[in-house]
Design a protein around this nucleic acid. Structure first.
Lengths: 203, 203
DNA sequence: TGAAAAGGCTAATGCTCAGTAGCCTTGATA
DNA sequence: TATCAAGGCTACTGAGCATTAGCCTTTTCA
């Protein structure tokens, strides 16, 4: 009943070369955008020609979809892990926001691409990503509603507060750099505090 | 010395049709992205064929650049207007953030495109937009530094606080809708308050 | 009223791109 | 050692795109 029996990785395993291709595609999609990235460039990044990619992946579109869907699944997983077994609603929110921000530092390219390239997905894939995103947003909003219901939080608008928290994470993905002068822990801690003051936590 | 003698509109005037084309292009760039928008579609949106656009604009690229550069200039203008003649640093920050957020509701498409399509600009235009953006970021950061220097604000990191405030505005541009259930004033007021608690304002 | 400017249009140009066809090399295995 | 699959490669296909060329109609105004 601990939840650890749920598989964390649910998508098909990739060969090493398949993983290299995905990593290269992710980097290129983040740098220049999905539409502006050519299969020739993705191939070059792993030392092969564009058409040879098709021995490993089925299409450029599938590459994008896999990157985004996997990222959303990981985001759900880290959220679940962060709040599991924590009772106090303020602690739950702080831990959820910390996990949110940490995800956006550790997977900033995935988050960046995920936020900018939804439009490049075909209808089926877009619906799948949007569904996962909505589900995640409901989790965050639910935490705030919980705190408000318990009179622990005081906000002008639950919706606005949840948007603010979610947007801060996305912002991090846009400017965070591993070699920058703000450490991951520093950002995570500070934003966790931000979150609590933002919902006007009592106590 | 009031600053009102500085022209607010500095770019070449557009004919009505030129303006219609720009508005249509803005809407399409926001909806499906610059690369995915065709000149045929922009033309269709104003009732002409794609090639006829070239009687009014010099290129698709210039259309994007003009949209983004104008938006950055307006953002600077509304900021200057918001803080002009205000002495108290907390008031200045609150008013600056209010102006920032209001800009992102009133010009959400421009802001949205401006944040997502920098990569689609050619080098010259990109440099111009990035310069304006940096300049604006310095203004916001400067306000926070001012408050910290005067011991009115208390933040763990000036940089982090300014990123957070800037990111909240960008977030607004992504989800705000004129016909949504959160009013512009409501969002502006709430985020103005967020800003002050976020910098740990004293008094 | 007549010339010319403005602003449409279709057709064409030249380029880029995702994906396919079909071939060849290599290395594992039977 | 013969076979065969894996995974490269080049050449090609078919489509889409921004932009230009050149033509025609309408409007403006001297």
């Amino acid at each position: 009943m601990s939840g650890s029996d749920r598989a964390v990785v649910t998508r098909p395993q990739l060969t090493p070369r398949g993983r290299a291709i995905r990593d290269a595609a992710l980097k290129l999609f983040a740098e220049r955008g999905y539409e502006a990235t050519t299969t020739t460039e993705i191939g070059a990044a792993v030392g092969i020609r564009g058409p040879s990619l098709y021995k490993h992946v089925s299409s450029k579109q599938d590459l994008l979809a896999a990157i985004m869907l996997d990222a959303m699944d990981v985001l759900h997983d880290v959220h679940a892990l962060a709040v599991a077994g924590v009772d106090d609603v303020a602690d739950r929110l702080r831990r959820a926001v910390e996990a949110h921000v940490r995800f956006h530092t550790r997977h900033r390219l995935e988050a960046f691409v995920g936020n900018r390239e939804i439009r490049s997905l075909d209808e089926v894939n877009r619906a799948a990503v949007v569904a996962r995103r909505s589900s995640y947003e409901r989790l965050i909003r639910g935490l705030i509603e919980e705190g408000v219901a318990a009179s622990r939080f005081h906000v002008a608008s639950v919706k606005l507060a949840s948007y603010a928290l979610l947007d801060l994470g996305m912002g991090v993905a846009a400017w965070y750099r591993e070699d920058g002068d703000l450490s991951e822990d520093e950002i995570v801690y500070t934003y966790g505090r931000f979150a609590l003051t933002l919902v006007g936590v009592a106590g």
